[in-house]
Design a protein around this nucleic acid. Structure first.
Length: 307
DNA sequence: GATCCGTGGCG
DNA sequence: TCGCCAAGGAT
């Protein structure tokens, strides 16, 4: 990694190092961490994994009720794997991105087949599961099994961007420099590293928030490069806004909402009512079928997938 | 690396 | 009101 002339003092050894931050951040976490169900010991690795799938791009408040119902119905991976994938899609409700439900079902099946029904402890084996990427593999290994991994989600990236790099926001896509920084800042001790991972995420979620950070409540504000620089506004191109109205995603959502509520197969004519434009409507439905979220039947009927 | 993939709350 | 944002992953 080459020195960035735009960030002189921010990354210099005179500002701070990881060890300086560990204690105040972890102490703050011990005092202020939310009591979330997937953080309780009884959640187990499966509970942690379910929560991580649901929390991908979805706020905690909306995940909570679905998570409780999900774990009550499918307390082990094999319980979910025994059901049709469409049941996972139905139980997913309105969490959004329903392909996650399909992947979670697929992960449960893989856990049953390849790991004897137990969520694997090995990072590489976690990463090989459907729907498990770099972040989720590290999160499950760290939160469920107490291992030492750099857990780099949007919260942690924002905390590091401000505290270390001195910028308001991290880059749009995760960079090699960010990964290296996260590894450098990771405490040596395994248990402490796992606490650090959870603590930095929580700090980003509760204090170092995207819109209006509560710096007066920040345990490391005295070490924060961004605050030290006067909290400069983000420069450069705007961070990609995601339009939704009128997109295929909206149409897919409307189609799938009908199918989730239906116990019996749904006729084409019923699906046609959710969107006027026929070309886009057909494209959206084809996409759902291609993704395995919808199963086409003879005679123009559709349902959530049984296989 | 850019794009696609849902949904809803909030300032 | 409406753009922004929320514990990403797959292609």
């Amino acid at each position: 990694m080459t020195a960035n002339p735009a960030l002189p003092a921010a990354v210099s050894p005179t500002s701070t190092d990881g060890a300086t931050l560990h204690r105040p951040v972890i102490d703050w976490f011990d005092a202020h961490a939310r009591d979330l169900p997937w953080r309780r010991p009884e959640a187990g690795a499966w509970g942690v994994m379910v929560s991580e799938f649901m929390l991908q791009q979805t706020p905690v408040s909306r995940v909570l009720p679905v998570y409780e119902q999900w774990l009550a119905r499918w307390p082990r991976p094999a319980d979910l794997a025994a059901e049709p994938p469409g049941e996972a899609v139905r139980a997913w409700g309105r969490l959004g991105y329903p392909r996650r439900a399909l992947r979670l079902h697929g992960a449960a099946a893989a856990i049953r087949e390849r790991h004897g029904g137990d969520v694997p402890t090995d990072h590489a084996q976690l990463l090989a599961l459907p729907g498990v990427g770099e972040y989720t593999a590290a999160a499950v290994a760290s939160f469920a099994y107490g291992q030492r991994h750099a857990v780099l989600d949007t919260n942690v990236r924002r905390v590091f961007a401000r505290a270390i790099a001195g910028t308001q926001y991290p880059p749009n896509a995760t960079t090699a420099a960010e990964r290296k920084l996260a590894r450098t800042l990771l405490p040596d001790d395994e248990h402490t590293a796992a606490r650090w991972a959870a603590a930095t995420m929580e700090l980003g979620a509760l204090v170092c928030t995207a819109r209006t950070p509560a710096c007066v409540r920040c345990p490391i504000v005295a070490h924060c490069a961004w605050q030290g620089a006067g909290a400069p506004e983000h420069e450069g191109p705007p961070r990609r806004g995601q339009t939704y109205a009128g997109t295929d995603r909206q149409v897919r959502g409307k189609l799938l909402a009908v199918l989730r509520e239906a116990i019996t197969p749904v006729a084409q004519a019923s699906l046609d009512q959710v969107w006027d434009e026929p070309v886009q409507r057909a494209r959206a439905l084809d996409g759902l079928v291609a993704d395995g979220l919808v199963e086409p039947l003879a005679g123009g009927y559709y349902r959530l997938p049984l296989t």
